[in-house]
Nucleic acid binder design. Structure first.
Length: 468
RNA sequence: GCUCCUUUCGUCUAGAGGCCCAGGACAUAGCCCUCUCAAGGCUGUAACACGGGUUCGAAUCCCGUAAGGAGCGCCA
C-alpha cells in the first residue's frame, strides 16, 4: 500500500495572514484533500518575541473562514502533538543530543557583533558572507575558557565538505547544490531555542509530512535541511517550491501593501470563494473554467501545473472572482452577506426582495449600502451626470411626474405610463430623468422592484423636489 | 560579491520541436438585449524579453545578454 499523503502549513503567528501565505496553505490543503491524505497545521512560534496569542487565534479563525480545515493541529490534536513548536522543546533537545553524539554539531562562541564584522569583511573582499568557521575546531580548553568568560554559545551544524546535494523539486525539477557553498549554520540559538532550519525540518519528518509545498525563498535553503535530516537518519519530504506572489506593481508582497491581509479583505466583504478561486489560478493553471467550490478545486489541483514565474496579485482579477462569487450565492447567503449594510430589523421578505433586485450590481457590501440608502433612507445628492439630466427635463416634467405619482405610488410601469401620456416623452427621455430624481444616479438596478420596496409617499416626495 | 530561481496578450495562464502567422480566462473595445447601469449573449484588439546557435523545422533544446526575484542571519 502506498503511504498516505501528508501535507502541512506551518505559519508563524507574528502578524496577519496574507494572501501569499494563504495560497501556500491552500495548495497544501488541496493536495491533501485531493488524494485523501492528511493536512497538518503546525504553529512555528519559536520566536517568543514576536509570536502573539491573538495572532494565533486570528490565524485559526481566518483559515476556518476560508474553509481550510486541518486534520491535525491546534485545537484538534493528533498523534504528533503538540503542534505548537513552543511546546516541542524536548524533541529538539533529544535530536540535538543525537547530533552532538555523532559529532555533527559544535558550540560557537562568536558574538553577533563579531559575526557581523566578519560578514562585512567577507563582502568587502568579494566573498560570500558565510560563517568563517572560527569555532569549528576549538578544543576543550578553549571552550572552557569561553564558558568561564560567561559566553553563551550557539550550536552550529558541521556542514561536510565536498558534498553534492541533489533533489527533485516538484516545481523546478532536478536541483543540485554544493555543500562547499554552505557555511556552518546555527541549529540552536544562544537562548536555547531551536533555529528555524532545524525545527522546521525535524518537525516535518517527525510528523510524517510527505510533501512540502512552500515559498521559493526556501529553495536555496533546502540543502541544509536535507543535510540535517540525513545526519539524523530521518526521511525527508518531497519539496515543491512555489513562485512568490508579487503585488499589483510587481514588487514583492509585504506588509506595507495593506489590502492583502485576509482579515481586511474579509472585513471589506470579499467572499472565501473569490479568494480561493483567485489563488487557485495564481501560479497554478487548470483547464477548469469558472467559479469552483472547494471539492472541485481539490479535484482540479495538480502539482504538474504549478508555474515557476512569480505571479502578480491583480485587484481587478480579485474583483472578477468576487463578482462570480456574489452571483453564485444562494438567495439566503446573499441576504446574510448584505445584512450588515441593511437597516436593522428589516422584514425578511423585504430584505430578500431588495437583495434580489440589487445583487447583480453589487461587488462588495458597500455597493449595496448605496442602494439601501436609496430605497430605505436618503440617497446621496445627485451627481453631475444626474444633475444634467434633471435640468434638461425641467420643472414642468417633474410637476407632471409628481402629480402622476399620487395615483401610482410605488408602481413603476403605471407611473411611467402616466408620465408618458402627460408629458409626451418616451424612451430614455422619459425614464432617465425619473431615475435620476428617484435615485440621484443615472444608472443602477431596475427601478420597478426598487420602487415597490420604498415607503409610501417617498416617490412623490422625490419627484416633487424637482418640480420647484 | 557568490549560489540559485524566473521571463508568452494589460493581468493570470495554455503550450513539454512540427497540431501555434500561439489557445483560454479576467480586463478592455464594439454589437445584441434593455428605461440606465450591471448581469447575460456575440465579435474584436492584444504576447513568445533580446542576441546567437542546434535542427529540414524552435515559444518549446543549448549558450550568452538584459531585467526581476530569492538565499548566503542567534528571522521564520
Amino acid at each position: 500500500m502506498t503511504p498516505a499523503l501528508v501535507t502541512r502549513f506551518a505559519p508563524s503567528p507574528t502578524g496577519e495572514l496574507h494572501l501569499g501565505n494563504v495560497r501556500t496553505a491552500l495548495f497544501n490543503w488541496l493536495l491533501a484533500r485531493r488524494d485523501g491524505g492528511r493536512f497538518i497545521l503546525r504553529i512555528e512560534d519559536t520566536d517568543l518575541e514576536r509570536s502573539r496569542a491573538e495572532h494565533l487565534a486570528q490565524l485559526l479563525e481566518d483559515l476556518r473562514w476560508l474553509g481550510l480545515d486541518w486534520d491535525e493541529g491546534p485545537e484538534v490534536g493528533g498523534p504528533a502533538a503538540p503542534y505548537e513548536q513552543s511546546g516541542r522543546g524536548p524533541l529538539y533537545t533529544a535530536a540535538l543530543a543525537r547530533l552532538e553524539a555523532a559529532g555533527r554539531i559544535y558550540p560557537c562562541y562568536c558574538s553577533p557583533l563579531e559575526l557581523e564584522l566578519s560578514r562585512k569583511a567577507q563582502a568587502a573582499a568579494g566573498r560570500p558572507p558565510r560563517y568563517a568557521g572560527t569555532c569549528r575546531e576549538l578544543d576543550a580548553a578553549q571552550r572552557a575558557a569561553h564558558q568561564a568568560a560567561g559566553r553563551r554559545p550557539t550550536l552550529r551544524f558541521r556542514v561536510p565538505a565536498g558534498r553534492e546535494l541533489v533533489f527533485e523539486d516538484l516545481v523546478h525539477g532536478h536541483q543540485l547544490f554544493r555543500s562547499d557553498d554552505i557555511g556552518d549554520f546555527v541549529v540552536r540559538r544562544a537562548d536555547g531555542g531551536a533555529a528555524f532550519f532545524f525545527s522546521n525540518a525535524l518537525d516535518d519528518s517527525l510528523m510524517g509530512v510527505s510533501v512540502v509545498l512552500r515559498g521559493e525563498d526556501h529553495l536555496s535553503n533546502t540543502p541544509r535541511q536535507l543535510l540535517l535530516l540525513e545526519a539524523l537518519e530521518l526521511p525527508a519530504p518531497r519539496y515543491g517550491h512555489l513562485a512568490l506572489l508579487v503585488d499589483a506593481h510587481g514588487a514583492p508582497l509585504s506588509k506595507r501593501e495593506g489590502a492583502v491581509s485576509v482579515r481586511e479583505l474579509r472585513a471589506q466583504g470579499y467572499l472565501p470563494a473569490a479568494l480561493l478561486n483567485l489563488l487557485f489560478r495564481l501560479g497554478h493553471s487548470s483547464p477548469l473554467q469558472g467559479l469552483l467550490d472547494r471539492p472541485a478545486l481539490a479535484r482540479g489541483f495538480d502539482t504538474a501545473h504549478l508555474g515557476r514565474a512569480a505571479a502578480r496579485l491583480d485587484p481587478v482579477q480579485l474583483a472578477g472572482w468576487q463578482k462570480e462569487a456574489v452571483q453564485a450565492l444562494s438567495p439566503q447567503a446573499a441576504a446574510d452577506w448584505l445584512a450588515p449594510v441593511l437597516p436593522a430589523g428589516l422584514d425578511p421578505t423585504v430584505r430578500a426582495a431588495f437583495v434580489a433586485a440589487v445583487r447583480a450590481n453589487v461587488v462588495l457590501p458597500a455597493d449595496a449600502a448605496l442602494w439601501s440608502a436609496v430605497v430605505f433612507g436618503e440617497p446621496p445628492p445627485p451627481d453631475a451626470a444626474a444633475r444634467a439630466v434633471l435640468q434638461e427635463a425641467g420643472p414642468e416634467f417633474f410637476a407632471a411626474a409628481a402629480a402622476a405619482s399620487l395615483q401610482h405610488d410605488r408602481d413603476w410601469s403605471a407611473l411611467a405610463a402616466a408620465v408618458k401620456s402627460a408629458t409626451g416623452r418616451k424612451g430614455p427621455a422619459l425614464f432617465k430623468p425619473l431615475r435620476c430624481a428617484l435615485t440621484g444616479l443615472d444608472h443602477g438596478p431596475e427601478l420597478a422592484p426598487l420602487l415597490r420596496l420604498m415607503p409610501e409617499g417617498r416617490v412623490h416626495e422625490r419627484l416633487s423636489r424637482h418640480a420647484r
